[in-house]
């Protein structure tokens, strides 16, 4: 391998490193290349925005970062795990342990209350009920929903639903929070509140990767990278689409 995988020690220390990630999809007889050799390194505790217009490959990148998909080639190391040639089951373990997803429209299960929604990842992780309740409660308090724990999703506002989703992402104590257009479905004021929450979480030491097409939202992050046509560039100074 020309990039080299490094020694065992350096692997273990490595928090997040992508080297030359290429992703191709078959389209009929040919292959479409979505990501053209993306390299990215992130330190623990960073707050990074991936900024790009639709069709730029940022969703594909998110899928690979989130271990929902595997790259065609290249190397991806997350918290010492080499994410390549893994089975679905192994991928699901990494997702369960290392990644907290926050989606655009919160994606709560409608027939469960806030508490149960937050508990869900812990159910799949096999955490015993008592601890599960305690941790879910703690996270809901953290996102400011101590008085809404047993409300059903349809009894909550959009911002509150997104907070539940954030609590759900945090509850497994992941290494990485991965947010896909977290304010996309919210009005500006609520969006700001969510961003304030992100800042607070980052202050506490959570690593956050936020994927967005909105420059104003991307500016909230301490570091912004641009992705256009599957190629990544580090944004310097003023962040624009170039």
């Amino acid at each position: 391998m020309q990039n080299g995988t490094g020694t065992a020690a350096s692997l273990k220390d490595c928090f997040f490193r992508m080297t030359d990630i290429v992703k191709q999809y078959p389209l009929g007889e040919e292959y479409v290349t979505i990501l053209r050799g993306i390299s990215l390194e992130i330190e623990e505790g960073e707050f990074l925005s991936v900024l790009g217009p639709s069709g730029s490959g940022k969703s594909t990148l998110m899928n690979i970062i989130g271990c929902l998909d595997l790259p065609t080639s290249g190397e991806y190391i997350l918290k010492g795990n080499v994410v390549l040639d893994l089975t679905e089951k192994e991928l699901s373990h990494i997702r369960s342990k290392e990644i907290g997803f926050i989606f655009q429209n919160s994606q709560l299960l409608q027939r469960m209350d806030a508490m149960k929604n937050v508990e869900l990842p812990l159910i799949y992780a096999g955490v015993r009920p008592g601890e599960r309740h305690a941790r879910a409660e703690e996270m809901l308090c953290k996102v400011g929903l101590e008085d809404r724990m047993h409300h059903m999703p349809n009894q909550l506002s959009g911002g509150q639903q997104q907070r539940v989703a954030i609590a759900r992402a945090l509850v497994t104590r992941p290494s990485l929070l991965l947010a896909d257009e977290p304010t996309g479905a919210l009005d500006q004021a609520t969006g700001h509140q969510i961003m304030d929450l992100f800042h607070a979480l980052n202050q506490e030491g959570h690593t956050i990767i936020m994927i967005t097409h909105d420059v104003n939202i991307a500016r909230n992050a301490r570091r912004v990278v641009n992705i256009i046509d599957g190629v990544m560039t580090e944004a310097e100074g003023e962040v624009t689409f170039a």
């Binding site: 679905e88 699901s92 997702r95 997803f101 869900l120 799949y124 992402a169």
Partner: peptide
């Protein structure tokens, strides 16, 4: 489908 996808994203194994 969406529910299944979501559960998988938050760490559910295929077996589960």
């Amino acid at each position: 489908t969406v529910e299944i996808g979501l559960k998988k994203a938050i760490g559910a194994e295929p077996g589960q």
